[in-house]
């Protein structure tokens, strides 16, 4: 998996690409835990994300928890498979999906 980060001021966009699973999520997890200070709007773009596993969901949950305290987090461009996973796991209830 690869991800691109575009930061402008307090707004950050993370573009995800490939598979976010057990092996790849720790990298994104570490990034999110260390880089969100001063960010009040986080956008996670999933146009190129093919798959997300429960470990990936955990990273999103962590991010959501952090952002809930300092602003908002938005998920954009989910594919059908990803949306379905969000639906199944109930993440669609707690995440702001646009």
């Amino acid at each position: 998996m690869e991800y691109n980060v575009i930061t402008s001021g307090s707004k950050m966009v993370i573009e995800l690409e490939g598979r976010l699973d057990t092996t790849t999520s720790p990298k994104l997890d570490a990034f999110i835990r260390n880089s969100l200070e001063g960010i009040n709007e986080l956008c996670i773009a999933m146009e190129k994300l093919e798959y997300i596993s429960s470990a990936g969901l955990r990273v999103l949950l962590a991010a959501q928890k952090i952002m809930a305290n300092q602003g908002r987090m938005v998920i954009t461009g989910c594919r059908e498979e990803i949306t379905e996973i969000f639906e199944i796991t109930g993440f669609s209830d707690i995440l702001t999906i646009e």
Binding site: L61, E87, T89, F91, D93, I94
Partner: peptide, 9 residues
Amino acid sequence: KHGFVIGGM
């Protein structure tokens, strides 16, 4: 009908 995962929130 799904609820959110357990332990998440």
